[in-house]
Design a protein around this nucleic acid. Structure first.
Lengths: 190, 190
DNA sequence: CCGGAAAGTGTCAGTGACTGTCAATCATTG
DNA sequence: CAATGATTGACAGTCACTGACACTTTCCGG
């Protein structure tokens, strides 16, 4: 069985336990036992208990990064970001994905420590996307203002975060919600 | 000696160790020994090792909250937030404060775990400021859009974060830097 | 001045996340 | 079949953090 497959088996088992008992209340020993492996082996597949939940954020990051790089260089930073977010919205069309997102969201927001770790990941992602955009702007001839680019990326993620907090996982609601916030915060010229 | 005084003695001792050895590499036992108390007593003054560093964020939050509430109700959300940030900029005029901020920033950004905890605190702060602003808007008669308000607050903090990351602690640089980002992200109507 | 509550502290034992090490096993390849 | 490299379990250890209990200090009404 491939590494990836084992990881997803662990993740599915762990998430069920997290929903049932809560994140902090579930021990790694319990997860390992439920999967049928030693605690030591659990840590060979995930660097920490947090990783089990935040793993999906990592993959989202990779997709966002790829999408952003695929946008036309002439497009404004704001529009490129909005378009890069498209798959986040579209993913929710699948009920199975929606349910999983809901579960993950529930687990993360119920534990301050996990929520913090989640925000840490998003910050890392914002950094790398900012670098990418600064580089792209540099190639297009214009001299980019790194600080402003970073702030804009942060603003776009703030919209994403606000929409995902206040609106549900229904794509019919979430999409317009994201559009509304991003229209409100659209930078004057960037 | 007052509780506050003991806390600040612990904090100063701990920060010196963190700078010298790194956050993760410094154990609570070492901090307690350096201060001259038992590990158990350390945890009577700080709920966790993180708290020692993030305590100052808490106080910043209280000040921000108070400043925001003191702004005139008619003022736009964006301008109110910018004005609430004023003391953050002004504090940097004092070289001693500036040095301490630099040290704290160094410690926090050197440890992913601490950085995550820091972002968690900022998120909590954004939530409470958003509630405050939604309530204020409601009292002024206009029906506020909670999601948009939340996004705007997030955007403002993104500017603050970007400025504090890319510009140093020199108020002559930091202030204009913050203004530049906040002008770029200013919402069209809020 | 006294007796007793309240607050602060040390000690000890325990839990749970995580790490290093080592030996056994399993699969691959020559 | 044998050498080799990857995967694993078992075990011991570190460190953050918690609960329980006993001890001392402080403080306050009588």
């Amino acid at each position: 069985m491939s590494r990836r497959a084992v990881q997803s088996r662990i993740a599915r088992t762990a998430e069920a336990l997290f929903v049932a008992k809560g994140f902090e209340e579930t021990t790694v020993d319990e997860i390992a036992a439920a999967v049928g492996m030693s605690q030591r082996s659990f840590f060979r597949y995930f660097a920490s208990k947090d990783e089990v939940v935040l793993d999906s954020v990592e993959r989202l990051g990779e997709e966002l990064s790829a999408r952003l790089q695929a946008r036309p260089p002439g497009e404004s930073v704001w529009d490129s970001l909005r378009r890069a977010f498209d798959p986040v919205v579209e993913r929710l069309a699948d009920p199975a994905v929606r349910e999983r997102d809901r579960v993950l969201h529930e687990i993360v927001s119920a534990s301050p420590r996990l929520l913090a770790a989640y925000l840490g990941r998003l910050d890392l992602l914002q950094r790398s996307l900012s670098e990418l955009l600064v580089e792209r702007a540099g190639q297009s001839g214009v001299e980019p203002d790194a600080v402003v680019v970073r702030a804009i990326v942060g603003g776009a993620f703030a919209c994403l975060q606000a929409a995902s907090l206040h609106c549900g996982t229904d794509p019919e609601v979430f999409g317009p919600c994201l559009d509304r916030t991003m229209e409100a915060l659209r930078p004057v010229a960037a």
